[in-house]
């Protein structure tokens, strides 16, 4: 589903990704772990197409399509979802307005009919329920005044509504308390654990992986994958640290 080959990328002319290769198939959940500064968030932003993250070499193919040739909004319409480490606040724009605009823009790009206001609200209510997020929160401005945990749950509600084929979740577990971590983990499973979907889960810690069992765990260091393994690798990392495992 997603094939990354020898990817090189710079931020402000500084090389961050140095020949990263990775393949994620439909039905799989991959976790990427790694020390601070390894390039985890850069990878997420490069996949999302954030301005300022320049690809200097390599390729990314998503469902047979050259992902890097697409604009960020086209990547979303093609089925890519980027879960932000720091979800952005947008004063003056309600979640409902934002998400309906987003969903209908994606549907339009795919040649589908837009959802009516009523249909959209029904969908939003269902997904908010899944993440135990009060529907009233969705009537408020995007992420404004939300706590860290609420922002992350709102991200997952967004994912539920937009129903992507592939999700790149950048430290979705950071800022979550124990209960919220479980709710978010179960949310990811409910929305994305399907034979036709896949997830790239970027995380520092093993704890989210207790709820979202990865099929493959990769260790990212200095801008490339240094080792990969099964779920046991995450436990080993937790026990022994990055230095020992990635050396």
């Amino acid at each position: 589903m997603l094939v990354i080959e020898n990817l090189h990328a710079t931020v402000a002319d500084k090389p961050i990704l140095n020949g990263l290769s990775l393949e994620v198939n439909a039905g799989e959940i991959h976790a990427i772990m790694g020390p601070n500064g390894a390039g985890k968030s850069t990878l997420a932003y490069v996949l999302g197409g954030r301005p300022g993250y320049e690809v200097t070499g390599g390729s990314v193919t998503f469902n047979g399509q050259d992902l890097l040739a697409l604009d960020p909004h086209e990547r979303a319409a093609a089925g890519l979802f980027l879960g932000f480490q720091y979800p952005v606040e947008i004063p003056g724009v309600s979640n409902v307005q934002f998400l309906r605009e987003a969903l209908n823009a994606q549907r339009k790009a795919r040649g589908e009919e837009p959802l009516s206001g009523g249909e959209f609200l029904k969908l939003a209510r269902e997904k908010a329920g899944l993440l135990k997020l009060d529907m009233e929160m969705l009537k408020r401005n995007v992420n404004v005044g939300f706590s860290g945990g609420e922002k992350k749950r709102a991200e997952m509600v967004q994912m539920g509504i937009l129903d992507p084929a592939f999700a790149v979740l950048d430290e979705t577990d950071s800022g979550l308390d124990i209960d919220a971590l479980r709710i978010v983990g179960e949310g990811i499973n409910a929305i994305m654990r399907r034979p036709d979907k896949a997830v790239l889960l970027i995380t520092h810690y093993q704890r989210l992986l207790d709820y979202v069992q990865p099929d493959v765990v990769h260790v990212l260091a200095k801008g490339r994958i240094v080792t990969s393994g099964g779920p046991d690798l995450a436990l080993k990392l937790e026990r022994e640290g990055y230095e020992a495992v990635a050396a």
Partner: peptide, 10 residues
């Protein structure tokens, strides 16, 4: 960028 990442054109 956040809006673009959700599929909203520029």
């Amino acid at each position: 960028f956040y809006m673009a990442a959700r599929g909203i054109p520029p």
